[in-house]
Amino acid sequence: MLEIKNLTKFYKDIKGVENLSLHINKGEIFGFIGPNGAGKSTTIKCIMNQINKTSGEIYINKVLNDKNNVELKKIIGYLPDEVHLYNDLTVEQMLNYSNSFYEKDCSKKINYLVEKLNIDTRKKIEELSLGNLKKIGIVLAMMHEPKILILDEATSGLDPLMKETFYELLLEEKNKGTTIFFSSHNLNEIKKICDRVGIIKDAHLVSVETINELSSNNLEIITIVSNDADKIKKELNQELIREEDSKLKFIYKDNINNLIKLLSRYNIEKILIEEPSIEEIFIHYYN
């Protein structure tokens, strides 16, 4: 459905993305994850033809995604990281204006999304908070029932309950066969809704894995406080994130039971097992 071939974008001498290739299947939710400045938004801006590619091609439904291909634009729904709309309009006017670009009546879908996301359509755009603007952005992206959704940091600004509603909407779209390109820096939400995930770092696609593969990596951040810290350190033979007196912090990749067996031989004061942040994964796992 969406194919990116050797995409490269340089901003003068600065790398945005380099030699990125991806293939996303129909009906798939593809997570695109990476730290800030890794190249996620640059990739999306290239897909949306907002910026010029240095090299490479992007195909949608095997058709070259040229910036003047109106037919392709009809089947794309786009939600930018920051939603900027016309402040002089009310929400209802904004939605009607967006509908005017399509050759069909989107009011049924608009009403469904407005109700689901609990939007007050009488408000003026300039009165809306960032979260509410994001909700309007979601309606604008989905109202014309696109075949492919390009979402850039879609849940930033949404409260936890609204995030859950949004995940439900995405799963509904997926069940209808919509392909979803979901950029995020939140590993938990990627794990929650995506089928596969592409990990981008320093303008390069580092890895593409299924969520099952990613989960089976069993990455954990372990913090141990013990008087036997030196002995544990020697026996673990693990690169540490931090070491302070009797405190050790490290990323553990193997079966957690093996670690517990090992630690059971020592006097442990405290043990903390956490899910690593995306930055910690990038620094210590994908490095």
Binding site: M48, N49, Q50, K67, N68, V70, E71, K73, K74, I76, Y78, P80, E82, V83, H84, L85, Y86, S98, F101, Y102, L140
Partner: peptide, 16 residues
């Protein structure tokens, strides 16, 4: 300047 171009450019119209 108002960054509304992201909305407008995503609609099925050409830059022309």
């Amino acid at each position: 300047s108002d960054k509304t171009i992201e909305f407008l450019h995503s609609k099925p119209i050409t830059r022309s």
